[in-house]
Structure formats: structure tokens, C-alpha cells
Amino acid sequence: MKIFQSSKSFHQAFWGATLLSFIIALIGLLVIFFGERYHLRLVYAAYVNLLVVLGLQVFMGNTNITNLSHSAFMGLGAYIAAICVTPVQIKKLSLPDAPWGLNTFELDALSSALISLTLTGFLAFLTGLVIVRLSGIGATIVTIAILVIVHSIFMHRTDIFKGKQAFFGIPQVFDLTSIIIISIAVIFIARFFRESKWGIQLRASSDDEKSADAMGVNIFKLRLLAWTLGGLILALSGICYAYYLGTISARPFYFSHVFLTLAMLILGGMRSITGAVIGTILITFGLEGVRFMETGPVILGLKFPEMLGLSGIALGAVIVIIMVVRNGGLVGNFEIEQVFIKTRKKI
């Protein structure tokens, strides 16, 4: 089966992804060689967010439907992998009342990841069956419903997920190098999907649902594909998160993380992979600056007050300003290889 409509779209996707991978790898390598120990953790978290933003882009960017459930799928991916991979001795201690014998087995990291991907992917597929049938706001509401449902299951089923408390004892499987490699792979996947005939048809149908329908494009199937692929990438981001930090809890998989990653995608421009990457980089660095201000630092002899909430204000401001001034984000439809390759001018 043909994935690309023309070799040109394949070339564009390939070179675009390669260039972005180069940037991503460069930043990672600089940190590995020159960064302090505490930098590593921050940068790792930034890469996890990049994966989330890419997973979000695959659905949102191609269908133009706002998704707010992404952090829930990330959480599912993280918890499922964590439950499988954590050693039995630790689980006996941390999850003494776990049902279905969840605390009586342990698997290697790869099998755990595969199980997590399969289960989360399957859940994404099931929820996708509902989502793709709804239009615009209805779909967004159901994504909120998914977020709330998953979060309250995490919070309430403490016998499995430990709720607000930390789920600890997850072995450290990944390091910064592994997540750089994974990020690069996901950049290629997301970019190839965008340029594939499915991605192109989807983007066309998000502009004009009726005519795409008339041309025989099955929007439901394509949306389901994008949703499930996005879900898998989000599960992967959750796995990476759990496999490095060693402890997870339900809190980070809720609205504040949803907004953070959404702002990243919107800032760069949700229709392009380049935008997703740029947005993630800008917000990550920008937020570090803002967080520094939040703690009430002394700069040039001036003592600034402690300003809790500043980072939230900054994120909100980024979203509002981008929406008002330039709702395609910083780069709009632009992809990085267009700097080098001349493409057909769009009207």
C-alpha cells in the first residue's frame, strides 16, 4: 500500500524530520557533556514533554479538534508500565491490597513497555470510536470527560495507583541518551504521518469536512487512526517518564500538565511538527526563567518578592496572545526543510 502520495512528500518529511532530529540531538548532547546533574533531570522532563506535544500534534494538528485528554493517556502509559516492571518485593510493600494479582508478578522493561503500549493503544482506540463521531466542541468535551474519568480512577483506586501518594520503586531503565533516540524516532513518525496521504487527507478534511466527504475520504477512519497513533505516542511518553523518574503520582497527569503541553503546541503552531518542537523548546526555557523569578530571587541587588503563580500567568498569556495575534502559532504551516527546499507556493 502506498503511504505517500508522491516521492516529494516523502523527501520533505524525511529532510524535515532529519533537521529537527539534528537540533534535538544537539541540545541533548550539549546537556550530556556540559550540564550539571540537576540539569539532566530537567532536560529529561523536557524531552518527555516533547513526546507529549508530538502525540498531541498528531491528532490536534491534523484534525483541528482540541484534545485535552492527552495527559490522561500519558498517565495510563506510565502507570501500566510501572505496575508491570516494578519488582514484586516493592509492590508487596507499596500495593499490599492490589487486585487481580497485580503485585505477584514482575516483567522486564521491554515487555512492560509493550504491554503498556498495547493496553493504552487499545483504550485510545476504544475512546477514539466515540471521539471521531463528534464534531468540534462535542469532541473536546468528551476528551475532558476522559481526563476527569481517568484522573478520578487514579485518585480513587489507591489499591492500584496509590492516588496522591507516590508509586515508587520503578527501576530506572532509561537515561538521557535513550530519550533523545526515542524523541528522534517519534519526530520521524509524526512527520511521516503528517505528510502521508492520510495526514494530507485529514488536514484537507479539517478545513472542509463536507467536500472531503464528497471526495470519498473516510474522515472517521482517518481520525481514528490519528487518535490511536497519538494515544500510542502519549503512552510512550508516559513510559519514558516512569522509566526515568522511578516514582510517579496521579497529580501530574491532570489539568496543569494539559495546559502546559497545550501551550507548547499552540505557541509553535499546532499544524506543523517544526512548530511543536519550537514551541516545546521555547516554553521549556522560558518557563525556567519564569520559575526562577517565582522564587523571589535577588537580581542586581534588587530583592524580588516571591511570586507564586507567575508561570501559570505566563502560560495563559502565551496562549491568549498567540490566539489573538497569530492563531496558527509562530510558524503556522511552515516546516523546517522549507528553508532549504523550495516548495509549491500556497495561496
Binding site: T66, F259, L262, I313, L315, G316, V318, I319, M323, V324
Partner: peptide, 10 residues
């Protein structure tokens, strides 16, 4: 919708 989200966050 996204603008309103941003305003809410701010």
C-alpha cells in the same frame, strides 16, 4: 475555546 482556556489560566 483556547483563548478562554488561556484567560482562565491567567
Amino acid at each position: 475555546l483556547l483563548t478562554a482556556f488561556g484567560v482562565s489560566l491567567i
